Amino acid sequence: MKKIVHRAETRGTANFGWLTSRHTFSFGQYYNPERIHFGMLRVLNDDIVTGGAGFPTHPHDNMEIVSIPLKGALAHRDSTGTEKVINTGEVQIMSAGSGLTHSEYNASKEDDVNFLQIWVIPKEKDITPRYDQKEFEVSKRKNKIQTVVSPNDESALWINQDSWFALSNLDQDRSISYKPNKLGNGVYLFVLEGKVSIGGEELGKRDAIGITEINEFNISANENSEMLLIEVPMN
């Protein structure tokens, strides 16, 4: 097992008043030559947007973009004609493909929204842009792995990459194992809440670990914990 640990406090920071963002990888004005990407995982931003504010219409192409609200809701609109609200408990994916424009706003005028914005480099370029979202039952990730994004699982959201996203809520003193879906893939585990131990490392809230060269690994919860696992090709 090879591993790289990214502590929460080492992330880049951006504060625009209406937006506070923590960047795991180089993004915008934050640049760290040692933190450009983890395999095909290019962006993992932890964003808080104030009530009524958001990202005005802007373009994207050839990127798989996943949004996961952790608190609150997002109002989405794009050039495919999609206009949706993404609530906590739902996951959104957008294949920018050959190019589209979209906007993302806090659906509330008063309360903050906290969401993860994640970019994965696509497998095929210039596909037709597409959008999808889905609600996932929290009970189905209790002390187990719940796949929410996959290239080959009809119960999950489809992604244009050999990449799998999973959520897991582990009770204190419980353990679980994760086996990559594809040989050679790496797994980037991001702790949403709680404390877990992996490969001799204890990780707290918003800490992360990138794991490569593994067939399987164990995760142990030192307290009630919530995690996001992102499995991606490394090249």
Rank of each mutant, 00 (worst) to 15 (best):
I4E: 12
I4Y: 10
I4H: 12
R7G: 00
A8E: 06
A8K: 05
A8I: 01
E9Y: 12
E9A: 12
E9C: 12
T10F: 14
R11W: 09
T13A: 09
T13I: 11
T13S: 03
A14N: 00
A14I: 09
N15G: 04
N15K: 08
F16S: 10
G17Y: 04
G17Q: 07
L19G: 04
T20H: 13
S21V: 12
R22Y: 13
H23Q: 10
H23V: 03
H23T: 09
F25P: 09
F27D: 04
F27S: 03
F27E: 04
G28T: 01
G28A: 11
G28R: 01
Q29S: 15
Y30H: 12
Y30T: 03
Y31R: 09
Y31D: 09
N32M: 11
N32V: 10
P33I: 06
P33Y: 08
P33N: 11
I36E: 07
I36G: 02
H37L: 01
H37P: 00
G39A: 14
G39I: 15
M40N: 14
L41R: 14
L41V: 10
L41D: 14
R42N: 11
V43H: 00
V43I: 15
N45C: 07
N45S: 07
N45R: 08
D46L: 05
D47N: 03
D47S: 03
D47V: 02
I48E: 05
V49N: 03
V49C: 02
T50M: 13
A53W: 03
A53S: 12
G54N: 06
G54Q: 05
F55V: 06
F55G: 05
P59G: 09
P59K: 07
P59L: 06
D61A: 15
D61P: 07
D61I: 08
N62F: 07
N62S: 10
N62L: 02
E64N: 12
I65V: 05
I65H: 03
S67V: 08
I68L: 14
I68C: 05
P69V: 11
P69M: 09
P69G: 13
L70H: 05
L70I: 01
K71W: 02
G72P: 06
G72R: 07
A73Q: 08
A75I: 00
H76F: 05
H76N: 04
R77S: 15
R77C: 14
D78T: 04
S79G: 13
S79F: 02
T80R: 02
G81A: 04
G81H: 04
G81N: 07
T82D: 13
E83W: 00
K84Y: 10
V85H: 00
I86C: 02
I86K: 07
I86S: 05
I86L: 11
N87G: 01
T88D: 05
T88P: 02
G89Q: 02
G89A: 04
E90Y: 08
E90W: 08
V91N: 12
V91D: 13
Q92I: 13
Q92D: 09
Q92T: 14
Q92C: 11
I93S: 14
I93D: 10
I93R: 15
M94L: 13
M94C: 09
M94R: 01
S95T: 07
S95Q: 06
A96K: 08
A96V: 11
A96H: 10
G97A: 03
S98E: 03
S98A: 14
S98F: 00
S98M: 06
G99T: 03
L100Q: 00
